[in-house]
Computed example of a mutant assay.
Amino acid sequence: MKIFLVIVGIIVAIVILLIVGLISASKKIEKQNKKMRAEMEKANPLPKEKQHLLAYGANLALYRSESPRVLQMKVDHEALKEGLSSYWDISNPEEAVQTLEWLLSEGHRTKYDELLLALKTGQSFTEEEVGKSQECYESAQEAMIKKLSFTKSDFDRVDTIAAWDFDRAINIARWSYILGYLTEEQAWSYIERAADAASPYFQSWKDYFISFAFGRGIAYEGDIYDIIWNGKELLGEKDSIWNEFSIKLPVAESR
């Protein structure tokens, strides 16, 4: 019995050490990412009004460990090129423009906003009908309640996944600019259009995050746990881009 307890104690100790190690490594990586982003921002400063526009692409930018305050990024161009080609079928300027126009004029919200409303009213669907969308929607709510302390009333305010489209549009404009598919002027034009379209939709950045998360869950059928930490930073840290800028664009910025 004593030997058994000793073995259990050793196993528990090892598990605790592993958890502490993982937490320490995670914090170190987070610190390194913030330092890298700060260096990019210092090397490529933008006026506040342009940073405000980029705030609408902050979810995906942080997910990729990029700064949401600049166009430039430290990236392997070949890997980015392969990613745009594989996931977005973008390999040239024409395809970049076509995708951006689709995201801004239609996007996934055209198809999935109706499903979001049906799920919010408690309708139930089989996997044959909606794939894993319902499961991922419910999982997204659970994750945001558990990790971000969101409430049902927070979810009740959001009836669109539009942030999923607008956030991606801003980042695709950035990536397309980096790869030379768009000029800088073209990239800013699409970023402005996305921000202008997003601003009237939402009352707060919390609503914007929820909309993005629902889009990831319903349209992409993806787990949102890997973007929860972005939400913690964007909504909780005093110096985050969301806590610096309003969800609403000033009239002077609107295009």
Rank of each mutant, 00 (worst) to 15 (best):
E49V: 13
L119C: 07
L22K: 12
G122T: 04
L100F: 07
L54H: 00
G107R: 00
K28R: 15
T99E: 08
K81A: 02
R109H: 15
H108Q: 14
V130G: 06
I19Y: 07
L104F: 08
T99H: 05
L17K: 06
K42P: 06
T121W: 01
C136A: 10
L60T: 02
L18A: 14
I23F: 15
E30K: 08
A61M: 04
D76N: 15
Q123Y: 10
K42V: 03
R109M: 14
T126G: 09
K74H: 06
N33H: 08
Q134D: 12
G21I: 14
L54M: 03
K111Q: 11
L46D: 03
W88K: 04
I90V: 13
K35G: 08
V20C: 09
L17A: 12
E101K: 15
A140L: 02
M40R: 07
L22P: 01
R69G: 06
L119G: 00
E95K: 12
L119Y: 04
A61Q: 04
S86T: 14
A79K: 14
K31N: 08
A61F: 01
P45R: 09
S105F: 05
L17C: 07
P45G: 12
K111P: 03
W102G: 11
Y87H: 10
E135P: 13
L100V: 05
G122K: 02
E101M: 08
E39L: 06
N33I: 07
E138N: 06
D113W: 13
L115E: 00
E135L: 14
L100C: 09
G83P: 03
K74F: 03
K50T: 14
E127D: 13
L17E: 09
S26M: 12
R64Y: 15
E114T: 13
L80P: 05
L54Y: 01
I23A: 15
S26A: 15
D113C: 11
L60M: 10
D76A: 11
D113M: 10
K42A: 11
N44G: 10
P68T: 10
T110L: 11
I90E: 01
E127I: 14
Y56D: 02
H52K: 04
A43G: 09
K120G: 12
S85F: 12
